[in-house]
Amino acid sequence: METVHVALAGRDYSVWIGPGLIADNARWRARIRGRHVLVVSNTTVAPLYLAALTKGLEGLTWSSYLIDDGETHKTFANVGRVLEALGELGATRDACVIALGGGVVGDLAGFAAACWMRGIDFIQVPTTLLAMVDSSVGGKTGVNLPAGKNLAGAFHQPRAVVADVDVLATLPQREYRAGLAEIVKGAAIGDPAFFAWLETHADALAARDPTILIEAIARKCRYKAGVVARDETEQGERALLNLGHTFGHALETAGNYSEILHGEGVAIGMVLAARLSEKLGMAAADDTQRLTRLLERLGLPTTPSREHAASRLLDLMRLDKKNTAGTLRLILWRGIGHAEIVSGVRDADVLAVLD
């Protein structure tokens, strides 16, 4: 097992990564301070893992609330239903929400926990690779709006993250590959040595080699934990973690959150960001090619669908949370491991890359 520590001045927490962690309930049960627990999950994950998780809740007053599976269900309506479930449970200020699922469940459950009585504890139990290496760590919570992805939300850190890699055995191949995109992203932003390690171990990672997988998850989480500790609310450095996201979120929104997975959008978005960096003279074509090759070896898409007009995607990119006063601010790079925030990017250059 690997343990990653997230240091946040009195709100520190651990990310545990390894097999059998859901059943190892003494570890995470100790992070529950009160007697009320609401487990939020979805209709795909709950039949597989809810019973195992709730064995660790004996002696507590608990209930569960399930949402349907998929990004389209990360809505205010479902946040309202989770809050109603907390009310029916009689949840007090020391209650805890446990998010058992992927990024959608984690984001929504965490947002509801941030709202109930202005903030109660929650524990992340991610069941997708994408959630293990990204959304479960760092305290970003939120929901989607028709205008764009994650436009409503709050920073609300978990009490613990329980990344039980055994659950990945039931993860569909497409979902698994989507999680690999976020691992690549961390290396592409700020760790060229990790990027080279991924190139060396790409085949083993694609094949779900458990030793390589645990190391990759831990290295990505360790990198993100350091960034979050230095910039919890994304005032500067943490924005770099959004490499590829402005493009990717636009693609997700254009497809009504049903055409591509978040990780697929990130993979495509990273390549588009690299190509734009090339166009602006910031980076060499060799780096774009290395990134593209690695993503393709991991079974990820690297080009956007032609179904969405470039002008439509640009309009959606304008709603990105990093923009200021109508000016595009994108995360670009100067090559592998050297990302930066770039303001005032011209529409014409973005359109050229999208076309």
Rank of each mutant, 00 (worst) to 15 (best):
L168C: 07
D107C: 09
R219Y: 08
I17Y: 05
S64G: 10
H262R: 13
W62K: 15
L328C: 14
L57M: 10
K224Y: 03
V15G: 05
V6Q: 10
A193H: 09
I212Y: 09
A160G: 14
M282P: 05
R33D: 01
Q157K: 13
L205I: 02
N42S: 06
V97T: 02
I260C: 03
L298N: 04
A169M: 04
G236K: 09
T327Q: 15
G148P: 01
V104S: 10
A204S: 14
L313W: 04
A26F: 00
E175S: 05
L66R: 15
D107Y: 13
R293S: 05
R35C: 02
I336S: 00
S136R: 13
Y257M: 10
N242Q: 06
I123G: 11
T128E: 01
A85W: 09
R334Q: 14
E234F: 12
E252A: 11
L295D: 02
T302P: 04
G20C: 09
D320N: 04
F111P: 07
A26K: 11
T92V: 14
R31M: 12
W333C: 01
R27A: 13
Y257D: 01
G18F: 03
I98N: 08
L86W: 03
H245W: 05
Q235V: 05
Q289P: 05
K140F: 09
L291K: 00
L171Q: 13
L21Q: 03
G190D: 08
R238P: 11
K279R: 15
P146V: 09
T324V: 12
S258A: 15
G70R: 05
G335K: 00
A91E: 07
L240M: 08
A283N: 11
R177M: 01
L21H: 11
L241V: 12
L66N: 04
T327C: 03
A188S: 13
K74I: 07
I268M: 02
I183R: 07
T211P: 02
T127I: 00
L295G: 03
T75M: 04
S258L: 06
L313K: 08
A95Q: 06
D320C: 10
G226D: 07
R118I: 13
D231N: 14
L354Y: 08
L108N: 06
R11T: 08
Y257L: 12
T302S: 03
A181P: 10
T43E: 14
V353F: 04
L129W: 01
R118A: 12
V6T: 10
R238G: 10
V15C: 04
K220E: 12
L295H: 03
A99F: 13
A52K: 11
